[in-house]
Design a protein around this nucleic acid. Sequence first.
DNA 1: TAGGCCATCTGGTCCT
DNA 2: AGGACCAGATGGCCTA
Length: 198
Amino acid sequence: MKTKNRPPRRRTPMQDAEATPGEQTPDRPQSGSGGSELTKGLRSRTARASGGRGEVSRRRQGSGGRRENSVQRRLESNERERQRMHKLNNAFQALREVIPHVRADKKLSKIETLTLAKNYIKSLTATILTMSSSRLPGLEAPGPAPGPKLYQHYHHQQQQQQQQQQQVAGAMLGVTEDQPQGHLQRYSTQIHSFREGS
DNA sequence: TAGGCCATCTGGTCCT
DNA sequence: AGGACCAGATGGCCTA
């Protein structure tokens, strides 16, 4: 429902520190992203528990060299984490580009991307099964084409899913899970619901 | 302005 | 031991 054409994020205090190692930026206002203001009142559970890199841990640190080493390792860890998240986001973007959806003008959120992808895969699988079964009237009869194997695999998974759904609730997905039309209908409905911003 | 989404930092845990 | 992964916390940006 949102357009995410955001400008690049400002450099965080930690990124500044990374660019100029050893240089402190104490006067920087709280401009960066969340986690960098460790000395502020409420911190994350872990930071609250340990003091993070705030005054307490600083006092606990021994020599300055050890502290610098620790800070350096943390900066390197942050950078790796950033790269990891960037790769994850690239994968999300690649996924967005192969999922057909209606809102071409607006970027799908991550949860929308995953949900649509799941249902798109389901609908494609169901379509393949429909096509292969029309060529092979006896679904149970094994054939040279991958269709029946795929069907058996798919059907087995569907049975397991149905059992789980019945155990949990089963109400939301209905009882026509095996029918391709059900998948396609649900996928189409979902696309339109996303378009309407629900 | 509230709420959704996101990027980033961070410490803990798992894995190689 | 070090890197990858994870989840919580936080603040910024955007839209309704």
